[in-house]
Design a protein around this nucleic acid. Structure first.
Lengths: 116, 116, 116, 116
DNA sequence: GTGGTCTAGACCACA
DNA sequence: GTGGTCTAGACCACG
């Protein structure tokens, strides 16, 4: 896995996991790799993964069974929210960029349709 | 002006200038600030600005009059191309992001319309 | 049964038994389980239970009949004292906590009434 | 500063700080000691304090000026909420304890008044 | 100087 | 084995 310097590694890992969840690569209720396993796989310190899982748990995207491991939530509502959160971020970034270029919201859709 | 570590500073400055051109903040044919002036204004090494102007000239976005300074091109065609280049970049990034989330091109427009 | 690390396990067991006595779950004069039985039930070393019973007997809460086992006292006075001891501990802890927060004793009752 | 083993050190520090805020020992808007300073003072690793401040910031109890330090919030609303959170926790624990002993809510106030 | 991130390595409780 | 906490020490960007 490759990381850039724009944002902390742990945030990049979080975003990747969220994306995998939304795309269905990771399925609801599924067991996540252990802290050490994932750390070894992507060549990162276990503490970093620990922080990733901690953050994901705070956002209710994962839950933890003591001594058993970390699991993806099986609440569809959370997944739904996550999907909206991520796509909204992308859409907002797009609209902002186009607005900066001087395109009104009305024109944006036209341009997009033309592009596709 | 703020810079991030993802891409070289000179590229970030170039993008900013291009954006200003497209938005009309900088007008065709207008004289650009001198290397030293711009360098001082955004607190950057003059060599960096030198490289910025060099690159802009290579792309025909600016031209230099010996001893007079650097000027924005007044060829509308160039501006037009520039506008397309930038907006295409934004659009492409948007489409890529949505595709990664599993949305087909057909769905993207629907989602965007709903969002606006 | 779950234990924490703040105080020795035997003290935690004693507190639980005292609570059961006060609540009437254990009735005056009743035979207590044998050391081995209780140790097995709550998965604790018999020596720990031995110490529990020893301590309870020292406080006159239980007495032993040689060869017959351990029994809860049937002296109401002891039970009464026990009840006061436990509730006083809880109340004192509560008052201390509220005092630390800057509430005078006068205010505490008002706050409690409001809460209930 | 002394810590027990019941809960993580960082949580105990957080609770202490919250208590100081509620009691007015720390005043709104005030600068908190730096990570390293506090770490040295209470003989704890800077990372632990880092986590403390991070958690407090997440709860909006502190905010951070980059390169300047960590500051207590000056929003009275947050402080008010904090005060309620802490006192509610203490009160709830008290009521639970008394209920376990078989005292109804009605009786609790009477007992408390008698005690004081 | 500040907070923020990261690595390395350790110990703990739980199952 | 698992996650959770903690220490030690390092480097970074910001002001």
């Amino acid at each position: 896995m490759e990381f850039n310097n724009c944002s902390p590694i742990y945030l990049q890992i979080i975003d990747n996991i969220k994306q995998d969840v939304v795309m269905g690569k990771l399925k609801t209720g599924q067991k996540m790799p252990s802290v050490r396993e994932l750390a070894g796989k992507i060549k990162v310190n276990p503490n970093t993964i620990q922080r990733v899982y901690q953050e994901l748990e705070r956002e209710k995207i994962t839950f933890t069974k003591r001594g058993m491991g970390t699991y993806l939530t099986d609440e569809e509502k959370i997944i739904k929210l996550l999907e909206e959160e991520i796509s909204d971020k992308i859409i907002q970034e797009f609209i902002n960029g186009m607005n900066k270029l001087g395109f009104s919201n009305d024109k944006i859709i036209g341009i997009l349709q033309e592009y596709l």
